[in-house]
Design a protein around this nucleic acid. Structure first.
Length: 413
DNA sequence: CCTCCACAGGAAGCGCAGGAGT
DNA sequence: ACTCCTGCGCTTCCTGTGGAGG
């Protein structure tokens, strides 16, 4: 009991954190360092909405963790505040298309924002669109729709919806609709229908990556709000910045490192956050990411991932699609599940690659054919862990454990 | 220079579950 | 009760391809 009390006690009276939330990924700070130009451009573009005019459609590019979303949300928040005090009708809809990854769900979010009730399935996308237009027509004002990570939608479902939204503006008059598309893939724009491309890209804005120095500024600023004074040893912030700068200047990653390092220090009962905590944080973040991804994988994706783990010896060497398929069939024969076709296995390998959990690159071996060379991009332990959670997959978890973890001399936990 | 391997990956469509509308 | 819609995981059938070996 005393142990539990201790845990609760440290949680309430943190020795490390003053305000941990300031480091969470969805926290939007009042000011964004080193993004003045971008914020100015955004504000200038959107300001006309305060006069009841339609802002130009806007396209925002930039790699992950460069502040695109934060800057957009920040400016929109202020814009909404201003609109309220001026009594201007303004609707802002923010949709992260990665999480709402079908045209239907995106359209549902947009329609719901003007008060249309939409069931989560059952209607056609066109019907939802029609209801939205019907409702919007009898409203007055400006709507700004933000489609974050828009490339996911287009890659999976084409640009039909974008085309419709771009044109919706004509149908909903006097209600005005302005679109902001956010993407981290620059090449993505080229795949768009030219009509969509030109109207969506009325204005463009590029967010360049932070360099290590800028990351340091950001971390220092945020750390002073989030941590108690004096708990960070002086190498921590430069280290987090350097690690994140190496990964194309991703500020979100840097903040994650800092927060998790603090959490680890707190769990261990240390009073000072050091280099060791940062290094441990790095491993923990990666592990959690993989666990989360693997857990939500459909059955056969899990099995194929297991097959990759086995056929690459836990990541010590690489395998080809054909080899993975053979191992997969072998594994599946032991648990009495019906197997999927080669084509599907190939498709799933592509999906796992996109998730960053394996690495696959296509090569040609000349006479010996063209194939993908597949690597595990993570350590195999989290995979075994997830397989163990599923009773029917125990045999496979065991095989994996023996073939990989056993050979490494590691013990099972 | 051409062949031909071992796949890559596009296209179409199927069966199912969940739900709307009538 | 019935039809129609969607997303999802999947199959079937298909065309495309880099380069080692003949």
């Amino acid at each position: 009991m005393a142990l539990i009390d201790d845990i609760f006690e440290t949680a309430v009276n943190s020795q490390i954190f003053k305000d941990r939330e300031k480091l969470l990924p969805d926290y939007i700070p009042e000011r964004l360092l080193h993004r003045d130009e971008e914020i100015k451009r955004l504000a200038q573009t959107l300001a006309v909405a305060l006069r009841g005019e339609r802002p130009n459609n806007l396209f925002i590019y930039g790699l992950t963790g460069t502040g695109k979303t934060a800057a957009t949300k920040l400016v929109l928040k202020k814009l909404e505040g201003k609109a309220r005090t001026l009594g201007v009708n303004l609707w802002v809809v923010y949709v992260n298309v990665r999480h709402r990854d079908t045209p239907y769900r995106v359209m549902a979010d947009i329609a719901e924002s003007v008060g249309v009730r939409v069931p989560f399935t059952g209607l056609s996308t066109g019907e939802v669109f029609r209801r939205f237009v019907y409702r919007a027509k009898r409203l007055e004002g400006v709507m700004i729709i933000v489609l974050d990570e828009i490339d996911f939608l287009v890659k999976k479902h084409g640009d039909d919806l974008l085309y419709k939204l771009v044109r919706a503006n004509e149908e909903t008059r006097p209600f005005k609709i302005s679109l902001i598309g956010i993407t981290n893939s620059v090449s993505f724009v080229e795949t768009l229908d030219p009509r969509v491309k030109s109207s969506l890209g009325e204005e463009e804005l590029v967010f360049s990556p932070y360099n290590a120095g800028q990351l340091q500024d950001i971390l220092s600023d945020r750390a002073s709000q989030a941590f108690k004074p004096g708990v960070l040893s002086e190498e921590v912030i430069p280290l987090c910045s350097a690690l994140a700068a190496r990964e194309h200047g991703d500020a979100r990653r840097a903040l994650d490192l800092l927060r998790v390092a603090g959490e680890i220090a707190e769990r261990r009962g240390d009073r000072i956050v050091t280099r060791d905590h940062v290094m441990a944080a790095r491993i923990e973040i990666e592990r959690d990411r993989v666990l989360e991804v693997v857990r939500t994988l459909p059955l056969h994706s899990k099995l194929i991932l297991a097959a990759v783990a086995v056929s690459t010896g836990g990541g010590r060497f690489h395998a080809t699609t054909g080899e993975v398929y053979d191992v997969y069939r072998d594994l599946i024969s032991r648990v009495g599940i019906e197997e999927v076709t080669f084509r599907r296995v190939s498709g799933i390998l592509g999906e796992l690659d996109m998730l960053g959990i394996i690495r696959a690159r296509t090569i040609s071996r000349g006479r010996y054919g063209k194939t993908r060379v597949i690597d595990l991009a993570t350590s195999p332990e989290p995979i075994v862990e997830v397989l163990r959670e599923e009773p029917s997959l125990q045999p496979i978890a065991r095989i994996l454990g023996e073939k990989i973890l056993g050979k490494r001399g590691g013990n099972s936990v």
